[in-house]
């Protein structure tokens, strides 16, 4: 009984806003920070290239990907996952060069590159030898 509620809490985020589809999932993400930017990978199996929408607005990265419901609906022998749209929002605190954001989707894996602005990049400062 309680196990089911845990599953729902972790996997099945129910819509609270009216413009959000009825059934959607938060895709699992990996985020790597490098000196020149951030890399975000999201697992969005079933999402098609043309349907993925990525927006970056004042520090908020939103990824949305609708997934078509299966055409065949018949009795399932085993039903371990449900199909629905993907939706996830991240708050990014690093200053990002918005015009240079890029993304690619391959094998249900979405990779978003968020380069930092030049001012925010880590820089090694050379120390000159002073006059003795």
């Amino acid at each position: 009984m309680s196990t089911t509620s845990v599953e729902i809490k972790n996997n099945r985020a129910q819509a609270s806003q009216p413009n959000v589809p009825a059934k959607w999932f938060e895709p699992a993400a990996d985020i790597l920070e490098e000196h020149d930017g951030l890399s975000v990978w999201l697992d969005v199996p079933g999402a098609r290239h043309d349907d993925v929408a990525i927006t970056f607005d004042s520090g908020t990265l939103t990824v949305e990907a609708p997934v078509a419901a299966p055409a065949v609906r018949s009795a399932g022998l085993l039903e371990e996952y449900d199909i629905g749209d993907y939706r996830r929002t991240f708050r990014i605190h690093a200053p990002i060069d918005v015009s240079a954001i890029s993304a690619e989707l391959a094998n249900g894996e979405l990779h978003i590159r968020l380069p930092k602005t030049n001012a925010a990049k880590a820089r090694k400062i050379a120390v000159k030898a002073g006059a003795a």
Binding site: A28, I31, E33
Partner: peptide, 13 residues
């Protein structure tokens, strides 16, 4: 991760 990299999230299997 390399010294210049840092994982902020690791959720994927």
């Amino acid at each position: 991760e390399k010294p210049s990299q840092k994982w902020l999230r690791r959720e994927r299997a």
